[in-house]
Design a protein around this nucleic acid. Structure first.
Length: 571
RNA sequence: CGGGGUGUAGCGCAGCCUGGUAGCGCAACUGCUUUGGGAGCAGUGGGUCGGGGGUUCGAAUCCCUCCUCCCCGACCA
């Protein structure tokens, strides 16, 4: 391709509403343009990158046995009513009515549609297992679209759905997909981690997220320094401490702590480490008018709401008690403690090994120092994992410690089971000739988000740095003042044709622009390999080569350049 | 949804407080010069100042209203 035929649409100035690197660079490099909040038009250069992602995804999906389909974006409400999601989904589901008054929605995902397809097309266990996939636009009316392509309302997704006679078959396909995902993200040149998205406590791994590691990521991930263990911080298990509780040393003492409410304030005021203060939180109990439950955790820890609301007896979603409710329960906000408290108590397992700790006295302006289990209050009967994992915690699999990094979720695979197939009666006849509900898996990749994530992970102050696999063009051919030298023009034209014949995606910058302008453009749009040809260089028989990430240029003999590039592009 | 901000040429912004009929830089276009790191000079085109209403002799500017877009928030003992 030639720049004279392929306008670059680059801009020097950053649009004021772009916050993160990928958003700024995608606008500056001319990959996308904003149409409205969360809606973007993809320009020719951006489309080329999207197509690179799609090509790799298609190859790996079909390698894993997937069959491509294409389902409508507009979906009838009836199917969503069958699955129950017409009610469940909130305003994020964009609904519309056609001229006949029939209700539809813009598909945020396609489980209902594929299940409808499967129940009509698949009648016998002999047709199973089967995996369908599509690359299609989705629409989710996000509360707050932001970060450009990263969190837009309309986006491109690859979604795959598998159907099985039993869970063993589902597990098999799930593992194949897991491998396919690994291959896809590796081939795209991304630094990523598969992350357990469900605690895995019930029957193995039901869901994995694939995260591209980048500081701007929206999710925090905990992964082991020693093993493959990786989990969303929200879900990472914090294992019970191995040490024994130390013996009590001093009599419990009620001390005045006027206006010292937070753990931080109390620990400073009393000169006690936060880890030796007991944090007591009151939350609503499960069921209407069920009162409150107290949650106990070490003062240097944060409550993990997801873990808390899963515990029996705790309201889900989690709701903190109001000041009035705390008063009614016999305590005071800021001075809550378990001693003498009359409501159910659930303790994090780490608090059981605390001794001589500080707790609230349930009286305004007072705390209790040197509190000890069994002596001053009974050991809590309900013990659970309540805290959010922190850097340095022991890895739950027993190998190494946890590191916390930020990630961008680009893929998610689930074992759905029969959630949709039973609601929508997707049955097949089994070997016995009896109807049986199919079991399902679903597997998504945010195609457009991958592009943004790749930029977040790989850019510098000059622009994007594409991997070979994602680059819209692999090689930039930059002639210096070609309009002045017929000899140079001829050489460039020949080289251009040679590269095309060699199957190398080359962008020939045949614009009549200055060198600096050309270089800046090519660096901004992130072309991984650059060739510079000048009249002077022709005499020496060498071509100047520079990789986008390198700081030094190298001279390559003219007659070796095609081979040289071929080798580079393979490696 | 709540709070804050914003809207002026394709992009980035000034002008608004203190009303007098719109400006700067970049980009675009033309010409000359220049030509290995986003060139210089000269010239040209481009705006219902987010929409509607009001106050006023006169509104980008003041008032009311609607809209857009952006940012922050939904872990506190």
């Amino acid at each position: 391709m030639r720049t004279s035929q392929f306008p670059l649409n680059t801009v020097k100035e950053t649009p004021s509403d772009a916050e993160i690197a990928s958003h700024k660079l995608m606008l500056r490099a001319g990959l996308v343009r904003k149409l409205a909040a969360g809606l973007y038009t993809w320009l020719p250069l951006g489309v080329r990158v999207l197509q690179k992602v799609e090509a790799v995804v298609r190859e790996e999906m079909s390698r894993a046995g997937g069959l491509e389909v294409l389902m409508p974006i507009v979906q009838p409400s009836e199917l969503w009513e069958e699955s129950g999601r017409w009610e469940q989904y909130g305003p994020e589901l964009a609904r519309l009515t056609d001229r006949h008054g029939r209700e539809f929605c813009l598909g945020p995902t396609h489980e209902e549609i594929i299940t409808e397809l499967a129940r009509n097309e698949i009648k016998s266990y002999k047709q199973l297992p089967i995996t369908y996939y599509q690359i299609q636009t989705k629409f989710r009316d996000e509360i707050r679209p932001r970060f450009g392509i990263m969190r837009s309302r309309e986006f491109i997704m690859k979604d795959a759905y598998s159907f099985h006679l039993d869970d063993a078959s589902l597990q098999e396909t799930y593992e194949r997909m897991f491998e396919a995902y690994r291959r896809i993200f590796s081939r795209l040149g991304l630094d990523f981690r598969p992350v357990m998205a469900d605690s895995g406590s019930i029957g193995g791994s039901l869901s994995h997220e694939f995260h591209v590691l980048a500081d701007s990521g929206e999710d925090a991930i905990a992964f082991s320094t020693e093993s493959d263990y990786a989990a969303n911080v929200e879900l990472a298990e914090v294992i019970a401490p191995s040490e024994e509780r130390a013996a009590a040393t001093t009599e419990m003492e009620k001390v005045s702590t006027p206006d010292q409410r937070s753990i931080e304030e109390v620990s400073q005021f009393l000169s006690v480490a936060p880890s030796n203060c007991l944090k007591t939180l009151m939350v609503k109990a499960e069921g209407k008018k069920a009162g409150l439950v107290a949650l106990l955790l070490p003062g240097d820890r944060e409550l993990n709401e997801l873990k808390a609301e899963k515990i029996e007896g705790v309201a889900s979603p989690l709701e903190m008690a109001t000041d009035e409710e705390i008063k009614a329960a016999g305590s005071v906000t800021g001075f809550i403690g378990p001693v003498g408290l009359e409501i159910p108590v659930i303790a994090d397992h780490a608090v059981l090994v605390m001794s001589d700790f500080v707790s609230g006295a349930n009286e305004a302006g007072f705390h209790l120092k040197w509190t000890n289990w069994e002596r001053d209050l009974p050991l809590p009967t309900i013990v659970a994992d309540l805290c959010t994992a922190q850097e340095g915690d022991a890895s739950p699999d027993g190998k190494g410690t946890l590191t916390i990094a930020r990630g961008i979720e680009v893929g998610h695979i689930f074992q759905l089971g029969t959630k949709y197939s039973s609601a929508m009666k997707a049955n097949v006849l089994n070997e016995l000739g009896k109807g049986q509900t199919m079991t399902m898996g679903c597997y998504g990749i945010g195609i457009s988000r991958v592009v943004a994530a790749a930029i977040e992970q790989s850019h510098d102050d000059r622009g994007i740095i594409w991997s070979d696999a994602l680059a819209p063009f692999k090689v930039a051919l930059c002639p210096m003042n070609m309009h002045k030298s017929d000899r140079l023009r001829e050489t460039c034209e020949n080289l251009y044709n040679e590269l095309i014949e060699a199957g190398i995606d080359v962008l020939f910058d045949d614009r009549k622009v200055r060198a600096g302008f050309m270089f800046s453009d090519m660096e901004l749009i992130g072309i991984p390999h650059r060739l510079v040809l000048g009249d002077r260089g022709l005499d020496s028989g060498n071509i100047e080569y520079k990789a986008r990430g390198d700081s030094e240029t190298q001279e390559i003999p003219m007659n070796e350049i095609v081979e040289f590039l071929k080798k580079k592009l393979v490696g």
